[in-house]
Design a binder for these strands. Structure first.
Lengths: 211, 211, 211, 211
DNA sequence: AATGAATGAGAGTTCATTCAT
DNA sequence: TATGAATGAACTCTCATTCAT
């Protein structure tokens, strides 16, 4: 076998591996969105992904790795889209609002998956948990950054950016965690966003920015 | 057997039943706090409570009832203590602050148990879930009430009381849910409360109250 | 304590014991009639009999003894009533018919209990099984006897009395065992008896008796 | 993978599945014959069949399905062989005798299994019970048919075919149900068949056929 | 004599994981 | 590389039996 064809083989193998992993994680995310973490068995993932159970273990060492990959996939969305939304706004406070709004919308789209990240925690190993926390910090950072910037620009009162940033993320997550409540009181996502922007952001405008 | 001793027996039985139920629920709460709802088996609850599996089923019809009782136990604390704290404050805004502060402190004490309420949802039947949601609404109500009162008194801006009330509860819960984060950024509970009061409550004071 | 009062005590004790045993067996029979052998737990027997589980073990060494006593109680009926019915008939063949008819009627009354005797067999110990078989032979004997007598009187053809006697018992039992079938084809007990008398008894009349 | 080898795989899978199902049902029948339906646990079936508990559930959805399959297996024999035996006899009454004789011989071979069908009833769901009753009706039908034919041919007296047919089946079953009795009175199967033919069939010959 | 709380082995069932093909 | 049949430990729940009172 020639060196080139060996290289080619390696590439093909890599591509296949990537394809398979995606296929499996997709299936896992889909199932978890439908049913919650539990009742998502390896058998179910295999079936839903159109592969065999055996193959699952070729690409992931155990179930935890699949769950981890699934959550990572979900968090990816935040890492990609929130910074984009921020970039499109001009003024410091508008950036805060844009970041929160986009964050909320993603939560709205991934409702079940977000709930999931709150539910699996305990089922994970220490390392797995750490990995998810680190990723969550990454999704949080842009929110903290825009708040910091707005404070420094003098547009927001002198709040603790790490706290307000985290509050914004928390309140966004709550749309998923307490969806039943907002349903009961008849609040839709856009109204929710609007009210929260007033309560959390506009209320914290500086005297200067208020004018 | 005399009528008196029959009465006595009934009392003893009642007392024992109460003792046993407490014993079992205690064990369940303890384990769930350590390990999360799942991975807490009936065997484990029995062992941890120092009773036999069979006895578990004498006092609770199935596992769900134990989980429900454990959560109810936790929520009880909120139902009792938050209204007390409110009663002790005089001014409308002080009542809001007192309610939120007490809420946070209870969360601080029952940290693991609060996390639990967010994790079990999926493991419960529809009825069980409904029951917990109803109880949660009960713990939420005082917060909504004090906010409503403060708005009506003209001390808070015209915010949506159901939303701000729920935000206060959410942010209190987050102390437990994201304890790891606040540890990392070196925030203790009292500082957390203080910052959140500024960010969520004081920021929403009306122009009039601000003076 | 005087000798007389000791005697009296013994009598009272004996009477109480008898009363308790009857109470327990009654409860067992009642439950078995309603639900079949299984799902008749010791707890259920105790509840239904208005006594405690502990007392069950004071009067019976284990569950098998209660089942045995319950079956014995049911078979008692056959031992008492079939001979009576025979006594009231005059002619040999009429005695056969009377015996079979009464046998069928008792089966009709104790339908579930009869089915039970066919179902428990395997669950019993060797001794228990033997005991029930012996009792069943006792209920069979009168049927064999009247057939023998009718053959000897020349009213029935020269059939094997042990076989025809057993057939009569079997066919009577079948009313209970295949009740669903006779329901489906719309046969009531009296019609069933009538048809079977023709098929099994009258068909075997001797040439002499036929006239 | 080529289309042929896929086909081959499918065939292999099918063959294996059939083999496994047979293996499991065989084990179940064997155990049930020894011990009665209850007290036959899934663990025991697995052990006796040389497979794991988990595999049982790959091939049967629950225990009831195994019991049902076991009984179906037994009744199959009747559905196949009795009509064959009938076909080989020429005269109407001979067909009745041939049917009954073959029925009895099958009972003789499957003694324990026949007892089983009388014992499981209570352990089955409504649907399961119905299914077995339907199957039993299928085994009964040939007997009813030959009796009907013999009556219409004028060879048997005008008896109720549904009743006499059912009697024939019942008496055949009794060989299994009361085997202990026939052992005690020293009756072997062929003698039993002979006596019953006289008692149930020949006794019901019409005047015409008697000559 | 009588209670019933307590036990724990064993039932049916599920599912993460392995391995021969 | 890919399969899926096979495993068995662990799960929830039941119930005959015991024993302190």
């Amino acid at each position: 076998m020639s060196a080139e064809s060996e290289d080619l083989n390696a590439i093909v193998r890599g591509a296949r591996a990537e394809f398979r992993e995606r296929q499996i994680v997709d299936a896992a995310v889909r199932l978890m969105q439908e049913k919650g973490t539990h009742s998502v068995s390896m058998q179910a993932i295999a079936r839903s992904g159109g592969v065999s159970v055996g193959l699952l273990y070729k690409y992931f060492s155990d179930k935890e790795q699949i769950v981890l990959a699934a959550i990572t996939r979900v968090l990816e969305e935040f890492r990609l889209r929130v910074p984009s939304a921020i970039a499109e706004a001009a003024e410091p406070v508008d950036k805060v609002i844009a970041a929160f709004t986009e964050f909320c919308r993603i939560v709205g789209e991934q409702r079940h998956a977000v709930v999931l990240t709150y539910q699996v925690s305990r089922a994970l190993s220490k390392d797995g948990l750490k990995s998810i926390q680190d990723q969550e910090l990454e999704t949080l950072q842009p929110l903290v950054d825009v708040v910091t910037a707005a404070v420094e620009a003098g547009d927001l009162r002198d709040v603790d950016a790490q706290v307000l940033g985290h509050d914004l993320m928390s309140i966004a997550h709550m749309w998923a965690l307490k969806y039943w409540y907002f349903q009961r009181i008849g609040l839709d996502l856009e109204t929710y966003i609007d009210r929260q922007v007033r309560t959390l952001v506009l209320s914290n405008l500086s005297e200067a920015a208020r004018r």
